[in-house]
Nucleic acid binder design. Structure first.
Lengths: 230, 230
DNA sequence: TTGCAATTCAAACAGTTGTATGAAACTATC
DNA sequence: GATAGTTTCATACAACTGTTTGAATTGCAA
């Protein structure tokens, strides 16, 4: 049935190069050189460059989603069909954060690739992410069971903010390290997961839907630029 | 002094096209066609394509930062040199959210451009964003004054999460609308700002950082994909 | 007007990109 | 070992990219 050697070599080389140098900087010729295969092999095995990228991302993405659902299921079985809200959110953000951060993952090509995918967001990957909605709905359903009284909109916002904190931490881990001058430990993944979950839970259980005391502030018109010092 | 007409036309056309179609899809030839100027004008007036993009982003970015600092200053003056934490966070995320979301901003080219810049993150823009650290430090300083007891790391995490929620809401507003089937109102910007601030404040004032145990999971190698159903 | 600099313009440049082709090499089956 | 199907390979293709060039044009000052 034909050795998958070429196919696998392309996948591995592509993931490594994309992880190291980003999508914008890596051409098919770079990939086939790294993989020691012929240029035409990519189109033969994957159809197109975009399909290669899509396959790389789908593979990693499916793995994360599988982990998420496993953790969710385990929590629900423990709780007799109803998992507590913190366990649900833990199942949601844990696999993503563990997959991309952490000292053991430093050298992991898969992790670095997923960080790139999170930062650069190239078209074939964006297309796949848009299909993630169905997967997230399962977590909304679980959250609804855990907090029957809560408004649906609050649940959506809670899930949205949990993902926001997780993904933004992955995307901006470099900047946060620099900003905090090392005081935020980006290697202690478990602590980060707990922090994200904790904030998300208090966001969901805490204060009622925001009161309407929005202060008014002046609008600032555009001026003309002279200095470039952002 | 030579009319700025060509220069301005290029800026306007570029911002409009980038806002509509993204950075990856727009070439210099598209821009000069839209602006009705000669192709060489871009390099003549801006030096390079990247410098054009940088100038576009810096302009909008400076405006946002100016708004932020104005709001912060106003809050500090009201509080006699010490602004309350919610006002600080409001000054941080308010201008960004108002700049990119809201019904009045629907047709705003600047808003749509900044959303694009937030999503696609092209090299010249990334370079500028990396210089944003100094600007954020001013907010950390204000937060330190507002919460003298708090650990610095907690402050960094709080600011980081506030920005996470704001930016992720901008980046994923389409998806959140779809996921929530319209139950999350992305047009009520003030409500969104209040929600983000509220969550951030409870994150900062609320519970201590917990510690827990974490399970270990296996690395997932690449296999052959048959179904593409993420 | 003359002179000079700033600006515009058409055209070409030099390089890269993803993809297609058709022949060659391989592999497994009968 | 001939055959049919799969996989590899060198090469070419066609299109697009940002940038440069050098001549024309414009605008302003003396």
């Amino acid at each position: 049935m034909s050795s998958d050697r070429t196919r696998s070599a392309i996948l591995a080389a592509a993931e490594r190069l994309y992880a190291d140098r980003g999508f914008g900087d890596v051409t098919l010729r770079d990939i086939v050189a790294e993989a020691n295969v012929n240029l035409a092999a990519v189109n033969y095995h994957f159809g197109s460059k975009d399909e290669l990228i899509a396959e790389l991302f789908v593979t990693r993405s499916l793995a994360t989603n599988r982990e998420r659902l496993n953790e969710l299921k385990a929590a629900e079985e423990t709780g007799g069909g109803r998992a507590p809200i913190d366990a649900i959110l833990h199942a949601l953000v844990g696999p993503t954060l563990r997959g991309c951060l952490g000292p053991d993952r430093e050298g992991s090509t898969a992790a670095r690739f997923m960080i790139r995918a999170s930062i650069e967001s190239v078209p074939p990957i964006r297309r796949i992410k848009n299909r993630e909605v169905d997967h997230l709905r399962k977590f909304i359903a679980a959250m609804r069971r855990a907090m029957p009284g809560r408004d649906d909109a609050d649940l959506y916002w809670g899930l949205h903010f949990a993902l926001a904190m997780a993904h933004h931490t992955i995307r901006e881990k470099e900047r946060l390290t620099k900003l905090s001058e090392g005081q935020c430990d980006l290697n202690d993944v478990d602590a980060i997961v707990d922090r994200v979950v904790s904030v998300s839970v208090t966001a969901l259980t805490g204060g009622e839907t925001p009161a309407k005391k929005a202060p008014v502030r002046p609008a600032v018109p555009h001026g003309r630029l002279t200095r470039q010092d952002l």
